[in-house]
Amino acid sequence: MELTTVWFTLIAVLWIGYFTLEGFDFGVGMLLPVLARDDRERRMMINTIGPHWDGNEVWVLTAGGATFAAFPEWYATLFSGFYLPLLLILVALIVRNLAFEYRHQRPEPSWKARWDLAIIIGSFLPALLWGVAFANIVRGVPIDETKDFTGNLFTLLNPFGLLGGVVTLLLFLTHGAMFIALKTDGDIRHRARALSVQLGLGAALAAVVFLLWTQIDTGNVGSAIFFVLAALALVGGIVMARAGREGWGFIGTFAAIALAVAGLFVALFPDVMPSTTDSAFSLTTTNAAATHYTLKVMTVVAAIFTPIVLGYQAWTYWVFRKRISVHHIPEAELENAGR
């Protein structure tokens, strides 16, 4: 296999890691006002993702870095072209991350309410905008002969792009509800499970339309297989959640997101950013790539360290595998905050 193909695949894997992991913590953040009935329950929800959200987010930083290194032209066109959506995502991630760290630092309800809002909006915007961005990457955007994006914000807000945003939004909401059902105990667990089924049906509907549209527009045999598997996984997850099998439900949404993203990358290949201006201007795995030497060096590093990273990140999920219920949340949080 060509090294450019290897790196295209690796970047797909990094995005899959990002969407499957941070997907559920976006979901948890957005469901904060829906599922939690009081501050204790809100804290419980936040604590289910407490040890993980930061590690989950590194997947996108690695995806960005890997794109810069392996496909510098792709990185340059994408990041300068999708300027305002990326700025919004940055602002959202900034306030959201700080909210997790700062929310518990003061007892005043107004302080907490403000950070709760930061978590909700900071989870909602990226959940929506990453979908818009990805749909536009797959569909193609106006790119000129110097490889620069020539559209603007409104170019990206087309029906297909917006539908992509709705799909990631609903998928992450479902994924988050599944995660809460899996990681908590008590009343909220059942509420989360019931909600995951409802949200899942909405997500399935939107996803099927979007994936069909993608398949008709740019799909191939490979992407069709992935999309069908993704739909099956999502339906299976919903059925399992309905039957009270939270673990399988979560695996279902996890697999659905992974397979759908994989399918989008298969549909994209061998382009990395097709041009709607003229297909001759499309960025591809070859014309956007770094040199063979750079890819070789990066391949060695990735081959050694990716398994190590996967190992210790999986281990943290094992360490914090226990379900959390309300009585696990320390009451006198201010005194406990120093621990």
Binding site: D54, G64, G65, M298, V301, Q313
Partner: peptide, 25 residues
């Protein structure tokens, strides 16, 4: 990008994962 991107990617893979995961732990 051919030169500058590699250290950034390696930094994310080697350093950011290590920092964030073990700080959470």
């Amino acid at each position: 990008g051919d030169i500058f991107g590699a250290p950034l990617a390696v930094e994310a893979l080697l350093a950011f994962f290590l920092e964030s995961t073990f700080l959470g732990l």
